[in-house]
């Protein structure tokens, strides 16, 4: 069974880049996109739970900070690993995210190679250790 990665990202460019980066690392997974916190909640309610959530902090309606709190305080979703992806490198932001239960905090890389490298590392770590027993 291939893993599902849910990406909450409002920017279509970033969505495009993520999609192609995942394609480039040839990681076999199902990519799902939502545009904001509301859509994310809707998705979780209606569809099968994803294996990882990659979430931007700055989103319309309910933003990533708020969403992180909601997810981590809910019994149903607290176990889902949430990785925050943001342009902000402010120490305060990073600390808050970890305190609220983020699994990782990723600063959006400035070039494409770094992005692919990053996604490769992340996915390999997660799925080698977590997914292997399943298969």
């Amino acid at each position: 069974m291939i893993p599902t990665i849910l990406i909450a990202e409002d920017d279509p460019d970033d969505q495009f880049l993520m999609r192609s980066a995942f394609k480039d690392i040839a990681f076999d997974c199902k990519l799902e996109f939502v545009k904001d916190g509301e859509e994310l909640s809707q998705y979780l309610k209606e569809k099968e739970l994803p294996d990882i959530i990659l979430m931007d902090l700055n989103m319309p309606k309910i933003d990533g900070r708020e969403m992180l709190k909601i997810l981590k305080s809910s019994e149903l979703y607290a176990h889902l690993p949430v990785m925050v992806i943001s342009t902000s490198t402010a120490e305060k932001e990073i600390k808050t995210a970890y305190r609220e239960g983020a699994a990782a905090y990723i600063a959006k890389p400035a070039d494409y190679d770094t992005l692919t490298e990053l996604l490769r590392n992340l996915t390999s770590f997660f799925f080698k250790s977590v997914m292997l027993p399943k298969s």
Binding site: D13, D14, L17, T87, K108, A110, D111, Y112, D113, L115
Partner: peptide, 20 residues
């Protein structure tokens, strides 16, 4: 400068991708 970073990041990424 914070806001400028965002589009610039994309320009660089798409450029990288284009070359690649």
């Amino acid at each position: 400068s914070h806001d400028l970073q965002e589009p610039l990041r994309k320009i660089r990424m798409f450029g990288d991708k284009l070359i690649k």
